[in-house]
Amino acid sequence: MTPVTPATPTAGARADAPRRPAGPSRGARQERRLGLLLCAPAVLVMLAVTAYPIGYAVYLSLQRYDLRFPAQAHWVGLANYGAVLTSTYWWQALGVTVLITAVSVAVELVLGLALALVMHRAVFGRGTVRTAVLVPYGIVTVVAAYSWQYAWTPGTGYLAALLPEGSAPLTEQWPAVALIVLAEVWKTTPFMALLLLAGLALVPEETVRAAMVDGAGFGQRLRLVILPLMKPAILVALLFRTLDAFRIFDNIYVLTGGSNDTGSVSILGYDNLFTALNLGIGSAVSVLIFGCVALIALVFVKLFGAAAPGAGPERR
């Protein structure tokens, strides 16, 4: 699969790992310096563009800062957080976001698993299936969102034509949320499926066959053998997708613009910033979203023991 075929087994590379046993020799010092030097630009860029701004966002969130009256900016402490946390808009948006995240990730897991099994067992056209599946992954979200939007617009769309006369699903809250989930699921299931497929490829064929010989049906093999062995891959896929779904913005922006109470927290943050021009409130929303995402990541790592993808390189 990988473009470079290893000329030697990786075990060989591993065997020479403790090359320099004790004391920082000249070579080791050189290696350490090179390592730091090579990483420095990436680390500096990442810190400068995320750590500093998020700190600045915290600072902004403690200000009354209306972009229409920048001269009147002043310190208000936690007032912005109070305003956000007591407003129904925030809880409404949070509810919609959590709902969209939970439903779409759950559907994606099931569909993605099915897709992974189809791709794994593909008897012909393996390349075709994988190529086709990469299209939703690669396509610009806004493009896909417009395709769905026009499809569901009465008069323009072929899907709207299938609905009872006079229904405009994108203008009602629950149908619109369902269509947002649908657009999200279409776009991201392939990614989920590819991650699961890679996990599926790590399940030893003999184990599955042994279970089959022992008389396990397809359902039993899946539930008792394949899924437990795929657990690490499933958790990583779930973590990635949950965090990603929680940030949902593009699909909602195009499909409904957040009207009729279909806005996510990201939409709420954007609106406060660019429609209400309130940098203070907008920043408070930003910081709260950041907190939610950190909480989700923490829950995954602590509760489910999802191996953080970053743990890998140290494991070698």
């Binding site: 701004p53 998020i54 966002a57 902004l60 943050g269 910033l273 930003s286 990541a297 993808p309």
Partner: peptide, 22 residues
């Protein structure tokens, strides 16, 4: 390095929009 990149992979872009804008 790995910790920082993991954090950023999970970072919600909207959280950066308001400070970056300013």
């Amino acid at each position: 390095l790995i910790g920082v990149s993991l954090l950023i992979a999970m970072f919600p872009p909207i959280s950066l929009v308001s400070p970056l804008f300013d």
